[in-house]
Amino acid sequence: MTYAKKRGLHGLLFLAPYALSFCVFVLIPIGVALVLSLMQFDLTAPHSIKFNAGKNYADAWKDEYFWQALKATLGYVVLMVPGLIVTSLGVALGLNGMAKGRNTIRAILFLPGMLNVAVTGLLWRWFYDGEFGLFNFVLKRLGMNPAPWLSDKGYAMPSIVMMSLWWTIGGTSIVLLAALQQIPKQIFEAALLDGSTGPALLSKITIPLLRPVLLFVVVTNTIAGFQVFGQPFLLTQGGPERSTRGLVQYIYETAFNNYRLGYGAAMSWMLFAIVAVFALLQYRVLRRSIA
């Protein structure tokens, strides 16, 4: 065996454990979900399980709850992704400018991200509680009216986004901070000597040089945003009036409360297609601006 072949074989051996788990836990379930999506598959009616071609997809297209859930999901993505990018960038810039205590602040910011979504959800449910919650306690102390954080359609989604920001800002900030630290200081020094001011430094140097990382952060967070489930499920259970019931929650209810696995799988594939389209669009647009 030649050296190159031997090396290739070793590489494959190292890859094998991950490849195996990827096949078992990702590829095969994806394939099974695809087959399921083409079937009438209700666990509570095993005798009526059969192939129904694309009927599940057609039904989902006509399902008003599907579109309602998609609208709620889009609402979350539209609020969450720009919100996260702007706040994380602000935090990263602040941290980058700090001479002392940067590591401590970074660790504190990163801490919420280490919590499980269930813990975070319970904590924020208490924060938002209309009568006994922390936020309304503070508002009342300040002589202001309590806010219906989770029980009003206008407040609920922004409240969920606020919790998500608190939960995820640390990770995104650290990624952006790492990218900021890669920008050579000489570029800023030269710009300052040429008379550039803060806003110009940000818009002409920092943002353009951060674009590859911003592309990564925007695309990954958009994908995560479309998959949001834990936060609304724990905080509002999709209410009030289904205004925060996202697509993943609707899929979950269809497949695991109603046991209609076929229909749930079809909607999952539709969600996948939507996410893929959005991610590709973002990638193309941002990629072009980098070039």
Binding site: D129, G130, E131, F132, P148, L150, S151, D152
Partner: peptide, 15 residues
């Protein structure tokens, strides 16, 4: 009011 959220917990807390 619906946004108040008082219910069983409010009963337990004598509210």
């Amino acid at each position: 009011p619906p946004e108040n959220g008082l219910g069983w917990v409010g009963f337990r807390q004598k509210k």
